[in-house]
Simulated scan of single mutants.
Amino acid sequence: MRQFTAVVNPAAGGSSGTAALLPLARALREAGAQLDTKYSRSLEHAREVARQAGGQGHVVLAVGGDGIAGCVGGALSGTDAVFGLVPAGRGNDFARALGLPSRPEALAELLLGGSPRPVDTIEVTSAVHDATSVLGSVYAGVDAVANRHANTSRLLRGAASYYAGGLRAVLAWRPAAYRLTIDGAEYERRGYTVVAANSGFYGFGRNIAPGARVDDGLLDVVVIRHAPKRLFFTMMNELKTGAHLERPEVEILRGKEVRIEADRPVPYGADGEVDASLPVTARVQPGALNVIW
């Protein structure tokens, strides 16, 4: 019988990750599994707890949204530890990409009996931060600004915070001149954003990279080039269906490593966390994380 350690973000979704964990914990314990619960005080604390539990042979569960998922999963990247995800945040985009069940009973059944499978992670490096690993995507541009607004919103939650943050970001955005280096090849583009995607989803269910796969050893690099702002809003609405790929302003490139630079300090984010500006390098780490999915 597996032993689990749940690393909980107590502020997930603007409420408590505990609410999502309780019915799952009941199902796991009724099946005879042991479950320890640890509440994170910070992302660094969450990484420390995850590494310790993984080193003890526990299945490490990230309870919260994409930030805690990327933090805990990234901390376990490159180790033999087994990772599980309990979606309890606003976006839950990596859980969406994995197709995880939403019902606690079904998720418990998967965690108890499912076999770990390797997924890729992304190593993120910049001049001002030590190298770290994340799961979903690295994005640089108007979406990073929008996510920053959503994360700091006190009045709105869930999808509303993303829509409001996006509106605020786009209205104030001016096109950036990007320089991309993908597996040694250079590209110059001007526009709204560049997304290096391991998972297809970001920003509360937007399918920015429908062709991205978490286990193919590649990053899908999505470039949204300059367009009138009214057209950009139309494209944002098309992200749910993938129709944005038909737009000439949208370009998909692929590679194992991408360096993103710009003509000004454009902010970038990774798995819901934004705290730095370009340049940044994202490199895929094939099969680096063992995940129950």
Rank of each mutant, 00 (worst) to 15 (best):
R2Y: 12
F4C: 10
V7P: 03
N9A: 05
N9T: 10
A11C: 11
A11D: 08
A12Q: 03
L21H: 08
L22E: 15
L24N: 08
A25I: 07
A25D: 08
R26G: 10
R29V: 14
E30Y: 01
E30A: 14
A31S: 14
Q34E: 15
L35D: 09
T37C: 15
S40Y: 04
L43D: 11
H45N: 15
E48V: 04
V49C: 11
A50Q: 04
R51L: 15
R51P: 03
Q52C: 01
A53L: 10
G54V: 04
H58S: 13
V59T: 14
L61S: 08
A62F: 05
G64L: 03
G65N: 03
D66H: 02
G67K: 01
G67Y: 01
I68M: 09
G70K: 02
S77P: 05
A81W: 02
V82C: 07
G84H: 02
G84D: 02
R90H: 11
N92P: 01
N92L: 01
F94N: 01
A95S: 08
E109G: 12
L112E: 08
L112G: 09
G114K: 08
R117K: 14
T121R: 01
I122S: 03
I122K: 05
E123P: 01
E123F: 00
V124P: 02
T125H: 11
D130L: 14
A131W: 11
T132Y: 07
S133L: 01
S137I: 12
V138D: 02
A140K: 05
A140Y: 06
A140E: 07
A140M: 11
V142E: 05
D143A: 11
A144D: 01
V145I: 13
A146P: 04
H149N: 13
H149P: 03
S161V: 06
Y162I: 06
G166M: 12
A169E: 05
V170Y: 07
A172F: 06
A172R: 15
W173G: 09
A177T: 13
R179A: 13
R179Y: 09
L180G: 05
I182E: 10
R189C: 06
R190H: 09
R190V: 14
T193V: 15
T193Y: 12
A196R: 10
F201H: 13
G203F: 12
G205R: 13
N207G: 00
A212V: 11
R213E: 13
R213Q: 15
D215S: 13
D215K: 09
L219F: 04
V222S: 00
I224Y: 08
H226I: 00
P228F: 06
P228K: 04
L231S: 11
F233W: 14
M236G: 00
E238V: 00
L239Q: 08
K240H: 13
T241P: 09
G242H: 08
P248N: 07
P248H: 01
E251W: 12
L253G: 07
R254S: 15
G255Q: 12
K256H: 14
E257N: 06
E261Q: 14
D263W: 12
R264D: 04
V266I: 15
Y268P: 02
G269Q: 11
G272E: 04
V274S: 04
S277P: 00
V280S: 03
T281W: 06
A282G: 10
A282D: 04
Q285F: 00
Q285Y: 00
P286S: 06
G287R: 14
A288R: 03
A288V: 03
A288G: 10
L289A: 01
W293C: 09
